[in-house]
Design a binder for these strands. Structure first.
Lengths: 113, 113
DNA sequence: CTCCATGTTCGACAATCATCGAATAAGTGT
DNA sequence: ACACTTATTCGATGATTGTCGAACATGGAG
């Protein structure tokens, strides 16, 4: 029995100073991932399966990995679920005002709400 | 003899309200294109061949097309050259503060200057 | 008219990407 | 034990992407 419960591998999160701008922009250039980020921007924490996106579970898993490795989200294990938060403060420390501006732009997009 | 001089096809530029956020983010997620945009943000107008990027002419042409169709740049013909400007005002009208924030983030990136 | 400079279009190519289904893993509840 | 829920990993697939070289088009200079 392992003392620290983990689903599979240890979740890797880049340090704030390691976050790459191009990875972030690429991550945000996909509608499904943008929906995830937008949803997280208004709610503190959320389980993977509860996002308003319409893709297969395996596809969703892929998008979470992209977002996590880009430094946009943080994920932690809790029992059966994986809880996700937006790394808003760290993102804002690294790239001040950028995430806010992009999310604001998304709200102006057709079909964003 | 055509009265209006044009190189090949007519240059298509999306109207401000047609500019798609995901196209913009995707366009900015490439280092070469980001360099082009950054360069244009400090200079009013520039010919295609004068950008500090190290790619083949045909590749450069491709990147300009991506940027133009995303609505980030405007291009006009002048004699032999194609002069490019950043659509900063229109971008800011469509997505207030976003371009500025992204360019600011780029300045904070390693090797941006 | 003939070079030359500027920049595009066309194909090709390898790499990356978003997507899915099937199999797997781990925790919860009966 | 067993079933159920949650979510991942793996492999495949078709689409998109960044890159280049070769050919072409256009305008100016000699």
């Amino acid at each position: 029995m392992s003392r620290t419960s983990r689903r599979r591998a240890v979740l890797e999160h880049p340090a704030p100073e390691e976050i790459d701008l191009f990875d972030v922009l690429h991550a945000l250039s996909d509608p499904t991932r943008m929906t995830i980020v937008r949803t997280l921007s208004t709610e503190p924490e959320r389980a993977c399966g509860t996002f308003p996106v319409d893709v297969a579970p395996s596809t969703l898993s892929h998008h979470f990995k992209v977002l996590r490795e880009a430094g946009l989200i943080h994920q932690r294990e809790e029992a059966n679920r994986r809880l996700t938060t937006l790394r808003a403060a760290e993102l804002d420390e690294r790239f001040p005002g950028m995430l806010t501006a992009v999310l604001g732009a998304y709200e102006r997009s057709p079909g964003a709400r």
